[in-house]
Design a protein around this nucleic acid. Structure first.
Lengths: 226, 226
DNA sequence: TCAATCATTTTTGTTAACAATAAAGCGGAT
DNA sequence: ATCCGCTTTATTGTTAACAAAAATGATTGA
């Protein structure tokens, strides 16, 4: 009974994780036709589990698959990234509202703690992009789970966030504006702590809206062209 | 070139479709442990494609799968159905807003035509539940695609609507209130036709909110207990 | 020289046999 | 009699061989 969790990770699960991170990190070029055999020897597995993983990834929209024509990673555009942010705006607004009503006090405290850690990280490391992104991801992750809305959390954590991260890697869009984002995060947590769901929703929507406009601006400046 | 679309439907696709409809229609009981072999001979296919389809369905949250323990259809609760409507409210609100800005005039005309057909159907058939549900589905379907937001449409059409239909079958929740819903639909289309995105979003949110409260009321009356 | 058709070859889709794991049933001991 | 442990068994996970389809390349005709 040393093993508390049996959790026999199946090969298909491994394949799914490996491929997902590989796609998100851009190690697999978009549009590139990629063979199953190649993937097999690359990730050290056989075609059965691989195909199962491919099916899951296709279902999630990370790659497209034409019968007998192979798989290729989805092509991405800046327009689609902006559309993703529009979806995030309404969904995470809902998540914040429900989180304000349903999060336990302990969860709220944990949320504040992550913000403190995040602030220290920014000051110390001058806002290194990686930790910045990681902190941001942690924040939104906690609120999504805090909503206690199973399907909502599933859609955000399982679909949208992976998509956003993929686009960000592809377009090398660092989150930018670390201090300002942190301030917005603080206000959102404040509203949640006061159990003010409407305010939390409003602030979260404005927060994501600002992030989207920030990307739009960069595009106009030609910094994100590709 | 008689064949415009090659579309070699693969067996895994067939399996996916068959299983999805079977789950949605409630032909597979929730919680029931169901063997792969049983599914194979039931749908006349082998385990390879079947497993691929199972992976996709698991990824979409229609069934859960524990390693070596088999698959079972997700259990559902009225609370989760209400949560689905909360998600629909914000997502379809967004869809309506974007549809107002992006739908072509032809699409708007088509939307109005479906509403006319729907109205005729209701008067003639005294609002038979099936056609009622079908018309409702068609309406929301058109707006989702009309938003021109690829991921949004994918999430609504590929995930949420199947979920909602499954819950409705399980809880035998007929949509109810056909005339009132039709009127709400008309107002939404009106707003879209006038390219008033904000109004369309507001009306759509209120429409879905009303549907949710209708279900809540039925639950309180004990009509939906199970 | 270019185009079109046919054969080759690669790659995907499918199937069936094999291995591993967990559930279930049986037996013994307390 | 009940509980614990072991063995059995059935089901899942995996692998490799097989079949089919499409892309590629060469050859032949115009």
């Amino acid at each position: 009974m040393i093993e508390a969790i049996p959790q026999t990770q199946t090969r298909a699960d491994e394949a799914f994780d490996c491929l997902q991170t590989a796609i998100v990190k851009g190690e697999l070029a978009p549009g590139e036709k990629i063979g199953e055999l190649e993937l097999c020897q690359r990730f050290q597995l056989t075609r059965g589990p691989l195909r199962e993983a491919l099916g899951r990834l296709e279902s999630r929209g990370l790659l497209v698959r034409r019968p007998h024509a192979g798989v290729k990673v989805v092509s991405v555009s800046t327009e689609e990234l902006l559309e993703l942010y529009r979806i995030r705006e309404v969904m995470e607004g809902l998540a914040a509202r429900q989180a304000a009503a349903r999060m336990t006090d302990e969860e709220v405290a944990g949320l504040q703690a992550t913000l403190d850690a995040h602030e220290a990280m920014i000051e110390q490391a001058q806002g290194q992009a990686y930790y910045q992104a990681e902190g941001d991801y942690d924040f939104h992750h906690r609120i999504a789970t805090g909503s206690r809305n199973t399907k909502l959390a599933q859609m955000l954590l399982g679909d949208l966030y992976y998509m956003v991260r993929m686009y960000r890697y592809r377009l090398s869009t660092s989150a930018g504006r670390p201090h300002r984002a942190l301030g917005e995060h603080r206000r959102i947590v404040e509203a949640i702590a006061q159990r003010d769901g409407e305010l939390a929703e409003f602030l979260m929507k404005r927060h994501i809206n600002a992030a989207r406009r920030n990307i739009e601006q960069k595009i106009e400046e030609g910094l994100l062209s590709f």
